[in-house]
């Protein structure tokens, strides 16, 4: 058989610290091939027959879990799922106990979601099998960033020199952090914008601003982030109307961006908060496309992380 091998890949996806541009681009190409599989009448290939993956979610997230599980099943992997709550004491089972138990059952890869930053890294230290981060606290959500990049490239082509504005609660956003790692790697310029109390002091790969007009000016694409209502309770924001007045993406404000600049949102969306009502359903919105691409991207991630022995 012809052996056209892809560049060797990290056997985990915790964030993009260990990934190079060529690897990411190769993965996005694979995702393109997976799109073709998803367009067939039979949306399933036998590639991962014999592999078992576990989705281990310590924080509930139906959408991400379904996307990963479908991706795995369309690749013919067996899927088991574990949902658990973590307590702040060690009275219950620890992360390590849970993961080690699964390891004894012969899991080949772990898809991990937690409310705390760093658990995928910790799991990677404890386990001998690949760990895929499905979101950890405010830190990273690499498959979301990959599907965002994939969707943006689908629409804009090469991202070199493109300006992407990310708007909302940057401080608490793993989506913003992963995109801040990934998009600049692909040549894009990222401007992160939000209320002063929801911006970090610095974020490598981005320009930070509280000025929405500045952020949107000449932007090639605009990504709005979900606003967690609990930010108001912590005294970080006075009120929802206050956020909307300052930072909602409206039809009118979108005129600051390039004509036809597409609109992204990682979901789930608070209607009429992050985006003005009609925008989410307008032709400029790529929100549904993001969800569809999520599956292809996750299939590609599973392929690259699982196939081929550790180098």
């Amino acid at each position: 058989m012809n052996e056209t091998a892809t560049p060797s890949f990290p056997k985990h996806l915790l964030d993009f610290q260990d990934w190079r541009r060529t690897q990411v681009e190769s993965l996005l190409e694979t995702a393109q091939m997976m799109q073709e599989v998803l367009a067939r009448p039979v949306k399933k290939v036998p590639a991962l027959t014999g592999f078992t993956v576990a989705t281990v979610f310590f924080e509930p997230s139906t959408r991400t879990r379904i996307s990963f599980e479908l991706a795995a099943r369309r690749m013919s992997a067996d899927v088991v799922s574990f949902s658990g709550a973590v307590s702040s004491t060690t009275k219950g089972e620890t992360y390590r106990d849970t993961l080690r138990t699964l390891e004894q059952m012969g899991i080949d890869a772990y898809i991990l979601r937690t409310d705390a930053a760093g658990v995928p890294h910790q799991a990677h230290r404890w386990l001998h099998k690949p760990v895929i981060n499905a979101g950890d606290g405010w830190r990273a959500h690499p498959t979301q960033a990959l599907l965002d990049a994939f969707t943006l490239r689908e629409k804009l082509g090469d991202l070199e020199g493109k300006k992407i504005a990310i708007v909302g609660d940057i401080l608490h956003s793993r989506v913003a952090r992963s995109n801040a790692e990934l998009l600049p790697m692909l040549g894009a310029k990222v401007v992160a914008c939000g209320p002063a109390t929801l911006l970090p002091g610095s974020l490598p790969g981005t320009t930070l601003t509280t000025n929405l007009k500045e952020a949107l000016a000449e932007a090639d694409a605009v990504m709005a982030l979900r606003l967690q209502k609990e930010r108001m309770d912590k005294g970080l924001l006075p009120s929802l109307p206050e956020y909307i007045a300052g930072y909602q993406i409206t039809e009118e404000r979108l005129r600051w961006a390039r004509p036809q600049a597409p609109l992204l949102h990682p979901g789930p969306m608070n209607r009429d908060v992050e985006l003005e009502g009609t925008l989410a359903d307008s032709p400029r919105s790529l929100v549904e496309r993001q969800v569809a691409n999520g599956q292809a991207v996750r299939m590609a991630v599973l392929y690259h992380v699982l196939v081929g022995k550790k180098s």
Partner: peptide, 18 residues
């Protein structure tokens, strides 16, 4: 994606267009 040796091989073959 239809190879029968993906669980074994050391290489990671590139997925190409169909």
């Amino acid at each position: 994606l239809y190879r029968d040796d993906l669980t074994e091989i050391g290489l990671q073959p590139k997925v190409r267009e169909t």
